[in-house]
C-alpha cells in the first residue's frame, strides 16, 4: 500500500450556527489520507451538521452561519466556489435517496454526465460499471440497469447511492449514518464496500454513526461529538481501549 503524505481533511476552529443556535462549537481535527474517520455521538449532537459543513450543503439551510476553516486535500472549502468544492467530495445520506424518476443506470450516470466528465457513451458505460462494482452492487443489477430504483431493496438502494457518489471519483467520501435504515446483511455489505474502497483507491472516508460498535469496527480514527463539542478525537484503538474522557466511556458503554 502506498503511504500518502499530508492530510485529507483538516478542520480548524469550526463553529456553525443555525437560526441563531450554536450547533457546532469550535471543532478541530485532522485526518490523514486513505483513512476512515468515524464521527460518533448521540442523536442531535451535530454530527450531520458537521458533515454538511465539510461539503457546504449547509449553504442550503436558511439562516446558517459558519466560522472556521475546512481544508479538503489542501483546498480551502470556504474560499472556493461551493460547486467546485462539492465535486471533490461524494455524499451518501441516512435514508436511501436514489432519484425515483431515473433508472438504476441513470442514477449513477447523472453526476458524470451533468458535470461533463466523460466524452462518450462507452466511457460513461465503463464508469457506471466501475462505480457499481466498487459499491458491490454490479452483480445484482447488471441485468436490469434500466429498472427504476424502487424495485431494489432498501440496502441495494443505499449501495446505488454509494455508486452514484463514487462515479464522480471523489477524494473524500462523506456518509451520514449510511446503515441506519438498512438491514444488518446490507449494513455488512456496505461496510465491506467501504473497506475495499480504501484498499483500492485514493479516497478518504468520513462516516457519521450513532452506534459505537460500527465506529470501532470500521474506522481508523474516531471523533466523539457531544452537544456540538468535540469531546475526544484520536486513533480508534486508543479511544476504544483507553478513552480519556468520562463521557466517551459512557457513550461506548451505551449510557448516553
Amino acid at each position: 500500500m502506498i503511504e500518502e503524505k499530508g492530510y485529507a481533511l483538516q478542520i480548524e476552529g469550526l463553529n456553525v450556527w443555525i437560526r441563531g443556535k450554536h450547533i457546532i462549537k469550535g471543532v478541530g481535527l485532522e485526518v490523514p489520507k486513505r483513512r476512515i474517520l468515524a464521527v460518533m455521538g448521540p442523536s442531535g449532537s451535530g454530527k450531520s451538521t458537521l458533515l454538511r459543513a465539510i461539503n457546504r450543503l449547509i449553504d442550503l439551510i436558511p439562516e446558517s452561519r459558519v466560522e472556521g476553516k475546512v481544508l479538503v486535500y489542501g483546498t480551502d472549502v470556504y474560499r472556493e466556489d461551493p460547486y467546485r468544492v462539492r465535486r471533490l467530495m461524494g455524499m451518501v445520506f441516512q435514508t436511501p435517496n436514489p432519484f425515483p424518476n431515473m433508472s438504476i443506470y441513470e442514477n449513477v450516470a447523472i453526476g458524470p454526465k451533468l458535470n461533463r466528465l466523460v466524452k462518450n457513451k462507452e466511457e460513461l458505460d465503463e464508469l457506471v460499471k466501475w462505480a457499481l462494482e466498487k459499491a458491490m452492487l454490479w452483480d445484482e443489477v447488471k441485468d436490469r440497469l434500466d429498472d427504476p430504483p424502487h424495485r431494489l431493496s432498501g440496502g441495494q438502494q443505499q449501495r446505488l447511492c454509494l455508486a452514484r457518489a463514487l462515479a464522480l471519483k471523489p477524494k473524500l467520501l462523506l456518509l451520514d449514518e449510511p446503515t441506519g435504515n438498512v438491514d444488518p446483511v446490507n449494513a455488512v455489505k456496505i461496510e465491506e464496500a467501504l473497506r475495499s474502497l480504501l484498499r483500492d483507491l485514493e479516497i478518504t472516508i468520513v462516516l457519521v454513526t450513532h452506534t459505537p460498535h460500527q465506529a470501532v469496527r470500521i474506522s481508523d480514527y474516531i471523533a466523539f461529538i457531544y452537544m456540538g463539542e468535540l469531546v475526544e478525537f484520536g486513533l480508534t484503538d486508543a479511544i476504544a481501549l483507553n478513552p480519556k474522557h468520562e463521557l466517551t466511556v459512557k457513550f461506548l458503554r451505551g449510557e448516553v
Binding site: L60, Y83, M89, M91, N101, L114, R164, L168
Partner: peptide, 23 residues
C-alpha cells in the same frame, strides 16, 4: 433530500432544478 443529493453531486442550481427537481 433529493435537492441535497443533487447539490452533493456538485451540480449548479439550474441543473439541480431543471435536471433533477423538474424530473
Amino acid at each position: 433530500t433529493y435537492r441535497e443529493a443533487g447539490f452533493a453531486l456538485g451540480l449548479s442550481r439550474p441543473k439541480v432544478v431543471f435536471d433533477i427537481m423538474v424530473g
